[in-house]
């Protein structure tokens, strides 16, 4: 399901709500690079809002490189999540995991072995529980 919802009673301006949701759809992979988004008129009609508002969101997404113009008339998703952002997210998750491992009393070597085993299991197909 790929929906966009705008909240009229929210303090967040509607164009930012649209901006954030399209960004999330692109980053989560629900919209893939090259997928087209509805025209601003069409989306405005569906959401019962002014089409300048949608345009404003699309312009901002275009400026930030999340949307690109195809054949000079319709916007398509330009890219998914940027690699450096994915990297720092994984780093963050890894740090949390290692902290937890240290807290339950695992040694550095044990953590390294665990990591190696997980990686091996991934490459070797069926899980390795040895």
């Amino acid at each position: 399901m790929v929906d966009i919802t705008v909240e009229f009673n929210s303090k967040v301006p509607i164009y930012i709500q649209i901006y954030e949701q399209i960004k999330d759809l692109a980053y989560s992979g629900k919209l893939k690079p090259g997928d087209s988004v509805p025209s601003s008129r069409a989306l405005a009609g569906l959401l019962e809002i002014n089409y300048h508002t949608v345009n404003q969101a699309y312009q901002a997404l275009w400026k930030d490189g999340l949307l690109k113009m195809e054949r000079g008339k319709r916007y398509v998703i330009a890219k998914g999540k940027p690699e450096n952002e994915v990297y720092s997210e994984i780093e963050e998750e890894g740090r949390e995991m290692i902290n937890r491992a240290l807290m339950v009393g695992l040694t550095e070597d044990e953590i390294m072995n665990l990591m190696k085993r997980i990686l091996k299991g991934k490459n070797g197909g069926a899980g390795n529980h040895a």
């Binding site: 790929v2 919802t5 705008v6 009229f8 019962e48």
Partner: peptide
């Protein structure tokens, strides 16, 4: 009651 509107960006 807060109001909102919601629409499909791609067809389900």
């Amino acid at each position: 009651i807060p109001v909102a509107s919601s629409a499909e960006v791609t067809i389900s």
